[in-house]
Amino acid sequence: MKTKLLSFWRMVRRLSGDDAYEQYLKHYAETHASIEDNPEALPPLLSREDFFKQWQDGKWTGVKRCC
């Protein structure tokens, strides 16, 4: 039961974008590991605030809602 509730909560967070920054950190770490020999190729890590700003602005360009 507890694991079900936990996975439901994870789903809600993922759906709403509440964990977007954690996902970004994870993706960043993975990419970082894969290009270790050339660290300059990776853009600097964003703070939570800056990341959220970019994420939110990106989310709203283009057709995102319809009738």
Partner: peptide
């Protein structure tokens, strides 16, 4: 955006 950045829920 400002008070608690990214805490969407």
């Amino acid at each position: 955006r400002n008070l608690r950045p990214g805490r969407v829920l």
